[in-house]
Computed example of a mutant assay.
Amino acid sequence: MVSQSGEVRLDLQKNVAVVTLDAPARRNALTPAMAQDLIEVFDEVDARRDVGALVVQAVGKSFCAGGDIATLTAAGRDPAEESAYEGMSTIYDSFFRLGQVSVPTVAAVRGSAVGAGMNLLLAADLRVVARDARLLCGFLKRGMHPGGGHFVLLSRLIGREAAAAMALFGEEIDGTRAHELGLAWETVDEGAVEDRARELAERVAADPELARAAVQNFRREAETAVSWEIATQFERPAQMWSMRRSASR
């Protein structure tokens, strides 16, 4: 499947949905149209019960350079103007929607990721990053306050100190440092990023039904810091369901 704009592709491989950003001329910066295409692709993934994991990757030298400059400039003239407000909201919604996809998600990151591009990779459940990747929050450098829940997305992975260094003080990191900080599960050579991400995705996608059940409770427990007692209650019905399912096979 190719999106209406032609800038988002969806391919299905061994129960894995591979979503590719394909606007290399502008370094995959998100326009409202491209963001809307992403949302529609994620909706399609959710509708397919044979899909058990999703990989988001990109063509070209950048994973995602953030929000498209023209979009940001137009919004800056009058952020409350209806079309500008809706356009920015759609960009926000695209990475929020990735975080709500009903299967485990992996971001395969090569090149640079800036601003909204950081939000996009942070919205995934797991990240595989090239050693020479360039990761930069970049909002303040552009004279903008971070948006889209950036502080939450970043700090829940790397903690307050590192999040302050990146989001407030403009520190840029590479893939090796991202791995050290806990922002990425693994850092590999640039040419191996997509293959490693798909390898991980195929493992969990082998049982799509179980993958969908497990990731919902994983997010509830890992992202909201619930108590051990509440986590037990989250997990009990899902575990009993999986045991009954296994016994009936």
Rank of each mutant, 00 (worst) to 15 (best):
T71I: 00
E199Q: 11
T73H: 10
T31Q: 05
N217Q: 11
A164I: 00
Q36M: 07
G147A: 07
D189E: 11
R212C: 06
G115Y: 05
A164C: 04
D37L: 07
A75I: 10
R77M: 14
A53M: 09
Q233V: 08
L200S: 05
K141H: 13
S248P: 07
F151K: 14
N15I: 08
A58P: 14
S89Y: 07
R27D: 13
A167W: 07
L12Y: 05
E209A: 14
R156K: 14
D11T: 15
S62R: 02
L126A: 07
V226I: 09
N217M: 13
A201R: 01
G170V: 00
D43I: 05
G138L: 12
D22Y: 05
A214F: 03
R142F: 03
S246H: 12
R203E: 09
V56H: 04
D43T: 12
S112E: 11
V56N: 02
V109M: 04
T31C: 09
D189T: 01
A133V: 10
Q36I: 00
L21H: 07
D125T: 00
E82G: 02
S3V: 09
D93V: 03
K141C: 13
E40P: 00
D22T: 04
A29C: 11
A192K: 15
R220A: 12
V16W: 04
E7R: 15
D46F: 01
F63Q: 08
R198D: 02
S155I: 02
V204A: 12
L153C: 00
V103Y: 06
G138D: 12
V101W: 03
D132P: 03
V103T: 09
L135Q: 01
E186G: 06
L168M: 10
A192S: 14
G143P: 11
Y92P: 02
L21Q: 06
A53W: 02
G99D: 05
E81N: 04
G60I: 11
L38F: 04
R26N: 15
C137G: 13
E229C: 04
M243W: 11
L54G: 06
V45E: 03
Y85F: 15
S62G: 07
L157C: 13
K14R: 15
R219T: 00
E209F: 04
Q216W: 01
A116D: 01
F42K: 08
S242T: 09
F42V: 09
E81I: 03
G159H: 03
L181I: 08
F151L: 13
E229G: 07
W228N: 05
L157P: 06
D11I: 12
R244K: 07
S248R: 15
A206V: 05
R244Y: 01
L122D: 03
A80V: 15
L10D: 06
V59H: 12
R236F: 11
W228F: 06
L38D: 01
A84H: 09
T105V: 06
V128R: 08
P237E: 13
A23L: 09
G147P: 01
A108I: 10
S3H: 08
A165F: 00
V226E: 02
E172N: 05
E171A: 07
A116F: 08
A238C: 02
N119R: 08
V18I: 14
T20A: 04
Q4W: 06
E7Q: 15
P104E: 08
M88G: 13
A70F: 12
S155R: 13
D11G: 10
D174Y: 01
G170P: 14
K141N: 14
W185A: 11
R9K: 14
